[in-house]
Each structure stands twice: as C-alpha cells, then as structure tokens.
Simulated assay, not measured.
Amino acid sequence: MSDTQTTPSQTVGPFFAIGLPWEDGHLIVDEDVPEAFDVIGKVLDGAGEPVPDALIEVWQADPDGRFDHPADPRGAVAREGFRGFGRCPTDEGGRFRVRTVKPGPLPAEDGVQAPHLNVSVFCRGMLVRLVTRIYFADEPGNAEDPVLLSIPDPARRRTLIADPAPFGYRFDIHLQGDDETVFFDL
C-alpha cells in the first residue's frame, strides 16, 4: 500500500489574490471627482453567508456613454480621473466597495442600454467567472433597456438593480438561492 494521497483534480482557490488586486483597484474614478459615489455591497453564497475571498471586477462607460478602450467607435475617453475599470476583493464579511461615477446610456442594436456597470465575479469553487450587471434604481431608461427586458421575470430583473443609499448605491450579489443574481452566459 502506498503512502501517497489522492489530490483533487480541480483545485480552485483564491489564487487571484496573489496578482489581480491592486491598492487603489476599487477606484474606477479618482476619489476627488466631484460626481463620484460608492457602490457598496456583499457577495453571498447560496446559504446567504458572506464570501470572504471573492474578487469583483467592474468595467463601465464614462458619463457620456463611452468606454476607455481603443475599440470604442465613438473615440477615446478624455475624462480626467476616469479609469473605467476596477477590481475589488471582498473582505472577511464578503463586503466590496467601488468608487465610480454614473455611466451614460449606451447605443445598442435594439435600442439604448440604460446606464449600468459590467461586473465579473471570481471566487473559490468556480472555474469560470460569473458575469452580471449593476443598473441604478433611479434611472428611467431601465424600463426600455433591451438586456433587462430580455429577462422575462420582473422579480429576476430586480436582482440587477442597485438601490440608492446615502453613500451612493447598495448592491448585493447572491451566487445561488432564492435571490440569486442574474448572471449572463457570455
């Protein structure tokens, strides 16, 4: 009989914590941008328990609806203090915070997309990232957004809506369970 032990064939861990986060990664805009606000929330598992080792990645348009990316056909973003991208690890309570500004509406093939943040979630036990969006509850364009309207159940659409709060907006990400956030298959 051998003294060696079987090891898991798929080890998934919080290895992204080694190189992906950076000190001011939660700042999608500089702290002192006048219209900046925070989006604060938690990543929760299927039992409603916090996920302390997740990483939230956010990519967004600027207030004019343009991305800071060379492939944006409307031209490069020239807004002082705007990165358009950020990464934030969750803390021991599953909490995350990003500092941002409200993006502008985006043109789409089938209408106009309401202002939103594109979000990827990485965490233990997942071999691929989860992709979702954060919309803002006080945006009238939500009622016409083609992506939100593609979700047939209004209760499920609600899982993509951030609520206003004194600091900006509150948004929790539920990985499973009754309140599971809508994730997109990209």
Rank of each mutant, 00 (worst) to 15 (best):
T11I: 13
L27N: 08
P154R: 13
V43K: 10
A155W: 01
E80S: 14
P89G: 10
Q113Y: 09
G81V: 11
D163G: 05
V119D: 09
H69A: 02
L160P: 04
V51D: 06
Q60N: 12
D163Y: 03
L127P: 08
G41V: 03
I161Q: 08
F85D: 04
R79K: 13
A76R: 15
F15T: 15
F37I: 03
A36M: 05
P70E: 04
L149A: 14
V39D: 04
V33K: 10
T159H: 08
G177R: 12
D38N: 13
P152W: 00
F37Y: 12
E23Y: 05
R97V: 12
V77E: 01
E57Q: 09
T90E: 03
Q5A: 03
V101T: 11
D110W: 00
K102A: 11
L27C: 01
V12N: 12
N118A: 04
P115D: 06
P152Q: 05
V98H: 04
R79P: 11
L148A: 04
L27A: 06
G141I: 08
G25S: 07
G19S: 13
G168F: 01
S150H: 14
K42W: 07
Q60W: 08
T159F: 06
A114E: 04
V121S: 04
D172W: 05
G19W: 10
T159E: 05
R74W: 11
G81K: 09
F184T: 06
V182G: 02
V147P: 01
N142M: 03
E23K: 14
I40C: 08
M126K: 13
G104Y: 02
V128Y: 10
F167M: 06
L27M: 07
V112Q: 14
A78P: 00
A54L: 14
D91W: 01
W59I: 15
D62S: 14
V12M: 11
P115Q: 09
V33R: 15
R79S: 05
G86V: 02
Q10T: 14
H174T: 03
S150E: 13
